[in-house]
């Protein structure tokens, strides 16, 4: 009798466990979707509100946060919540473009280096080393300066500085896949290297690439905000979050703390969300870490 009970309970707990696991996965996926929708919302509506965000209202200047203006207003009476919103959306778009280009460069260089090997590999590995041994900020400033600043300058400079780590990951991954038995076998069976790349290597690289792309986001956005803050990136007519913070500097000594604190906190939240998205995506896409 006793036996029966314990057996059925283990069965039940097993069903429960399976359900738990499915639920965990589903909850993660749900989180991903909700998050993406949220971000898209910020991107789309934020840009659409750029005109509203730049509306001045001199009767409501320098107001501390209130219900009407949760983030307060600035010296021209512009609502800081709207400005932060459109600023975030601009930063997000710039960050997305830069991260996308950067990860494509990383993918291309990682793939080329590992598939061609030999001198080509040595050449690209050297460049990866060179880029990793330069301080990011200095290269960003140099590149932004060389490309003439502006939106293009920011995207180019951020894209050109963030690829090495991903290129390294992809290169290692390709080497690992290529040394696997089944890939060695298909090569012996006379498959062309293009066929091998298409059927064996790309499917393995894809998750790495996607996760790498998402994890590049926070860096891209932070560095974009950084050089914009310095004043080398976007112009005051393109009020990205870095510009908003840079402008706030002039008004800090008068005690208008909300001009800097709240937009920066919003930036931090956004960056953190991307971090979480990347980590979750890694767990979901990469079967190795998903086991943990």
């Amino acid at each position: 009798m006793n036996l029966e009970v314990s057996r059925s309970s283990t069965l039940w707990s097993r069903v429960g466990l399976a359900r738990q696991r499915v639920f965990d996965r589903r909850r993660q996926t749900l989180f991903l979707i909700v998050f993406c929708v949220l971000c898209l919302g910020v991107i789309l509506t934020g840009s659409a509100r750029a005109a509203v965000a730049n509306q001045t209202n001199l009767s409501e200047r320098n107001q501390a946060p209130s219900w009407a203006h949760p983030f307060g207003t600035d010296w021209l009476g512009r609502d800081m919540l709207l400005r932060t919103w459109s600023g975030l959306s601009l930063s997000l778009q710039v960050g997305f473009l830069a991260a996308l280009f950067s990860s494509l460069i990383g993918l291309l260089i990682g793939l080329t280096a590992a598939t061609l090997g030999g001198a080509v590999d040595a050449f690209f590995s050297w460049w990866i080393d060179v880029f990793l041994s330069l301080p990011h900020m200095v290269v960003l400033i140099l590149l932004a300066f060389v490309s003439g600043g502006g939106l293009n300058g920011v995207v180019i400079s951020v894209a050109l500085t963030h690829w090495p780590s991903l290129a390294r990951v992809i290169r290692a991954e390709v080497y690992q896949v290529r040394s696997a038995d089944y890939v060695q076998l298909s090569a012996k069976l006379g498959r062309s290297s293009f066929w091998v790349a298409r059927h064996h290597i790309l499917p393995h690289i894809w998750p790495q690439f996607l996760v790498g792309l998402i994890l590049l986001f926070p860096h891209a956005i932070l560095h974009e905000a950084g050089i914009t803050f310095i004043g080398i990136g976007l112009s005051p007519h393109q009020p990205a979050i870095g510009i908003i913070l840079a402008e706030s500097m002039r008004h800090l000594s008068t005690g208008y703390w909300w001009l800097a604190v709240l937009p920066g906190a919003a930036l931090l939240v956004m960056v953190k969300l991307f971090d979480i998205l990347g980590e979750n995506g890694r767990a979901l896409l990469d079967p190795r870490t998903a086991q943990e």
Binding site: G226, F229, L252, K272
Partner: peptide, 23 residues
Amino acid sequence: AYLLASTPAFWLALLLLIVFAVF
């Protein structure tokens, strides 16, 4: 530590400036 890992350095500088220098 996780929070600080994604905090923009210039924003933190602004925060410290507001709290310790301005106020």
